[in-house]
Design a protein around this nucleic acid. Sequence first.
DNA 1: GCCGTTTTCGGCCCGACTGTTTTCAGTCG
Length: 581
Amino acid sequence: MNNQEIAKLLRSVATALTLKKASIFQIRAYETASDAIEHSTSEVRDLWQEKRLDEIPGVGVSLQAHLEELFKTGSVKHFEQLKKDFPKVVFELIDIPGVGPKTALELAKLGVKSFEDLKLKINSGELVKKGFSAKIAEKISLGLKETQNRTGRMLLPFADAKAQKIVDYLKKIPGVVAADSLGSLRRQVVTIGDLDFAAASKNPKQTIDQFVKMPEVKRIIDQGENRGTVILDSGLQIDLLVGQPDTYGALLQHFTGSKHHNIKLRSFAEKKNLSLSEYGVKNTKTNKVVPILKESELYEMLGMQTPPPEIREDNGEIEAALAHKLPSLVELKDIKGDFHLHSNFPMVHPSHGPGANSIEEIIKRAINLRYDYVGISDHPPGFRTTSEKELLSILHKRTKEIEQLKSSYQKSIRVLNGLEIDILSDGTLSVPNEVLANLDYSIAGVHSVHRMEKDKMTKRILKALENPEVDILAHPTGRLLNERDSYDVDWEVIFEFAAKKNKIMEINAFPNRLDLRDDLVRLALKFKAKFIVNTDAHEISQMENMKYGISVARRGWLESKDVVNSWDWKRVLKWFKIKKS
DNA sequence: GCCGTTTTCGGCCCGACTGTTTTCAGTCG
């Protein structure tokens, strides 16, 4: 069962509780947990196996037991008991935007059996005849269409590009003095559902009026005095809040979220007789609202540091900020090199896809990025299709070329000779150790037989890491966003070993990988493991993806000291025990 | 059902928009 399905199940339970008129707080607890799971960057099933369910904000003792039952038996008796009093279709209908528990139950009582059936009953006018107002029927009809062409979650580069266009549009609206993209994009969550924006203007209504006229707007969901929601032709939902310029900081804070961060923060503020909202900070005794120009002022009023947006997930950042012990997170500008880069060097029968550019082109781009060092890590020829003799001859040629480039560019950058090799299903490597010993470093990764029992996969990776020639574990979990889940691995075992034996965990910055995942980065950090942020670029323009890997590192609470490729050359040299430099 | 910088009991973020409400319910972020 994946996160989407679990979130949906918990939403169903909240719906059943709502219809049973249960305590609003119990209902809210289920909604909160559902929301947390839907937006979790790690699979809840993985967390369960790692005994880390308690790390999900809003999941307490009771829900942990229910989830345990769910994973073990496939269902939860208590949930089924609650849901059985209502037609199943109710729990489907609540997926339609604008349809909540009450409306869904009313529809079910009118005999609606499915989405298809609902569509028929709206079109035939039956719904209106049976007492629904025409406007509500129209709203449901539009919501239904949306449900059917809903887009999946976007990868960061796509969301970035789209958001930038919208910010540009907003900034051109007369009276707008500032505009920013917020929400999950500002927090750099690995996939983005919808886009949230804030703008500052003395004339919010005019701004909203212009916003809903934006090109590509297919439908206006709401349009108020200071907020608007639209759906674009692509199905993407865009939310905008407009605030007064003198309290824009409060708006930024409010709409950056996460929801859980804000709830925790506001509960805390309440104890200090302060009430936080997008309009500023209100003293609940005097009812006076203090405007907040800069976001940091709001946190200062609460006596805490300002947590960077990437860690505002209610994962301990509020406690750390109160104690003035927030980490000083690694930044893009700290990065001094990239170790995972693929060139088009002819490998005859490469084991996996080669890069598009020459080694020299990669070096030039790295110089352009002001790196101090750069590592080339092509896939070697496939071990099944190439004899060892051929392999040695090809790699010898490649080493010669790299050595030449090393000396030609030595004044500008240090070049390292590496390879990305396969961890075979038994944990051995696709290239003999004698070859690896002649390299500056090697990256090992699982590239085949992705589905394996947890115990076997753990042993497989461990065995590869035990090889003294392996320096870096590439894209450790193997997940591909929107495509493939993480491998089942006992991560604590891997991280403990890695920390002890100086094996580096890669944070692969490729936008559909972003692997190691942020929650596992945080776990590995507890074991004091070291990390490297690499782009895995197969084309020099992809070397710009470094920023996405840095976002993951930041979401995992990493500081520069934890990230090997933010270190200076001397320290890198020492770490990899490179003799020639 | 969750949770702890007044609490292991007794609270639980804050606000907007729509429809059709003449004071509010339902839904959403």
